[in-house]
Amino acid sequence: MNAPAVLLINTPAGPAHVTAPAPRATWWELAGQDPDTHVSQTPAWLDCLCATAPYRDASRLYEFEDGRRLVLPLVRGRHRPERLDMEESWPADWGIGGPVSPGGVSSREARVVFDDLMRRPAFQVGVRFRPGGDDIWADAAPADFRSEPHMTQVLSLDGGFSTIWERRFHSGVRRQVRRAERSEVEVEVDRAGRLTPAFYHLYEESIVRWARQQHEPLPLARWRRTRGFPRRRLEAVAARFGESCAIWMAWSAGEPAAAIVVLRYGNHAKLWRGAMNRDLAHPVRAVPLLHRLAIEDACESGCRQYDMGESRPGSSLASFKAGFGADSFSSPRYYRERLPVSAAERRLRAAVKRLIRFRDA
């Protein structure tokens, strides 16, 4: 780990002391004081990222004149020169980053952070904010920062599981769960990483189905999906999070039918990954049953939210999550770059999709 460097920055919005990388003890302290901290905003998540991808810790601790503090989780490339590098909170496929800030953030503090990021020598800097409070960041963002929209679906666990079952689960979801409970399906939960191989086997089976649904060449789908989520990443997360990483597995006819990975930190439970053998899982409605059990477990663990992750508005996945009562929230990414590389990448991806007649799920 890099030795922390402390410097005083003077920005148009005011001064602040910045320590980079952020001291782990302080980061954990602030995360514990911020009830809205997501599991993906913890030092453990950064450790998993750096252990399984070519990144290193670039997190920043901001200390303001009135004594308030916030941590911005951040990584940068491990091998690139600074001016050709990207600093992200977080890179694609790693979910929500953004500041950890007990008591929220003021407009001035948000401007200081953005002013500091404007001065970073990296070619590109991006921050994916958690749901809520985005108006303050939107107002503070300089013109050079662009907004990239993202939608996150979150189920409120207020009121306990009985309230969620009766008032938030749609009737169709309740029917599917009851059907699963009458079927010959067995469910187990692993909190020690034992089911990692079985989960990843299901994930590889799912890639074949996703490629067919999206009209994507299977070799391309396998390369893209396994590059974005290699098995070692699941192993690293299971090892570092321990009992806070639960693999819920449904078995049908003695075979793995469906599985989900749910992570937990503080008030927050996060659906991280899911996979299934549709031929086995769909007849017994294994997936709704897994979510029902994971949501009840999150309630019993004292969580206030069950984060079901990002979805494309209007997609079948978004409708599926809404069936459990999950509400949609904006969790935008703000980024600045010295050349319009992102626009060129989007055009290239769109051209490739048109060429292979790719269908978004």
Rank of each mutant, 00 (worst) to 15 (best):
A326H: 09
G274S: 11
W165N: 02
F320V: 10
N277G: 04
I207H: 04
V237Q: 02
D57R: 06
F199E: 00
E87W: 13
R346Q: 12
Y334C: 03
L234T: 06
V284H: 01
V284W: 01
G274W: 06
L7H: 14
W165V: 03
H201G: 11
Y62S: 04
P43S: 01
A180T: 05
G266F: 08
I136N: 07
D139G: 11
I9E: 10
A211L: 03
A322E: 12
A180N: 04
A13D: 11
D190H: 00
L157T: 02
P197M: 07
Q176K: 15
T26S: 09
V112L: 02
G132F: 04
E255I: 07
H150S: 08
V105W: 05
L220Y: 14
A361F: 15
L280G: 05
P73T: 00
V100P: 08
R78P: 04
R354E: 13
G103I: 07
V237N: 05
W137R: 02
H17D: 08
W94F: 15
V75I: 14
G67I: 13
E337C: 12
R357F: 06
M276F: 04
V177Q: 08
T196Q: 07
V287N: 09
A22D: 04
P131Y: 01
S40H: 07
W210I: 07
L70V: 10
A44S: 10
M308L: 11
G228E: 13
D327Y: 10
V287L: 12
A198F: 02
D158R: 10
H150Y: 14
A250Y: 00
E166F: 09
P21N: 02
L339D: 04
C50G: 03
S107W: 10
D139T: 10
V105A: 07
E296P: 07
A239D: 14
A236M: 05
T19K: 05
R178P: 00
R24G: 01
R231S: 08
L271N: 07
E204P: 00
T163L: 11
Y203L: 03
E345F: 13
E29T: 04
G172H: 13
V341Y: 10
R182E: 07
D34I: 00
S106L: 05
V105Q: 02
T152N: 15
A140S: 10
H79W: 15
Y62T: 07
G254M: 13
